[in-house]
Simulated assay, not measured.
Amino acid sequence: MARTIDYGNLMHRAMRGLIQEVLSDVAENGLPGQHHFFITFDTMHPDVEIADWLSDRYPGEMTVVLQHWFDNLEVGDEGFSVTLNFGNAPEPLYIPYDAIKTFVDPSVEFGLRFETQESEDDDDEAPMEEMAEDDEDDTPKGDAEVVSLDSFRK
């Protein structure tokens, strides 16, 4: 069988490394400026650790916000743990990087989305795409240009 380069999984690994690096810096130095994160993750992932009442309330996926109040942010090679406040009740969570579906920092219009391709014979993840977090406001945020790669091919 011919060997191929699995760009999708390589991109996923690189982007999870980026998330790990960003969270490590925040754990050490705090959130700079107006930065904050919306992190959506799969609550049914086998390595996710959240309170039963949270998994009951959010079956499938949950979005947490790291902004004003969070505590005990610890970043590891496979995931991170953090204590968040849910209605004045601190709750510890552990989120593995491969459970993350989206990671967004709306203060700088940065976002990552991890796409999964579900088929019977292929469980590999499809390439990750950048996403704009602009669900509530359809006004343009800046100049963007779509470039066709055909112009670079010989």
Rank of each mutant, 00 (worst) to 15 (best):
D6F: 00
N9G: 03
H12C: 05
R13K: 08
R16T: 07
L23K: 04
S24T: 15
V26C: 04
Q34C: 08
Q34P: 02
H36R: 10
F37Y: 15
T40Q: 15
H45Q: 06
H45E: 01
H45M: 08
V48T: 13
V48E: 08
A51D: 15
A51E: 15
W53H: 12
W53L: 04
S55K: 10
E61T: 13
M62R: 15
D71C: 03
N72Q: 12
E74N: 14
V75E: 00
V75P: 02
D77M: 11
E78F: 14
G79D: 01
S81Q: 12
V82L: 08
V82F: 10
V82E: 04
T83R: 00
T83L: 03
F86C: 00
F86K: 07
F86Y: 15
A89H: 05
E91R: 12
I95H: 06
I95K: 03
I95S: 05
P96S: 07
A99S: 14
I100A: 04
V104K: 04
D105T: 04
P106M: 11
E109F: 08
F110K: 06
F110P: 04
F114T: 01
E115F: 00
T116A: 09
Q117M: 09
E118K: 09
S119V: 03
D122E: 03
D123H: 14
D124A: 10
E125G: 03
P127R: 11
E129W: 00
E129G: 11
D134L: 12
D138G: 11
K141N: 12
G142Y: 01
G142H: 02
E145P: 01
E145F: 12
F152S: 06
F152D: 08
R153K: 09
R153T: 15
K154A: 14
K154Y: 04
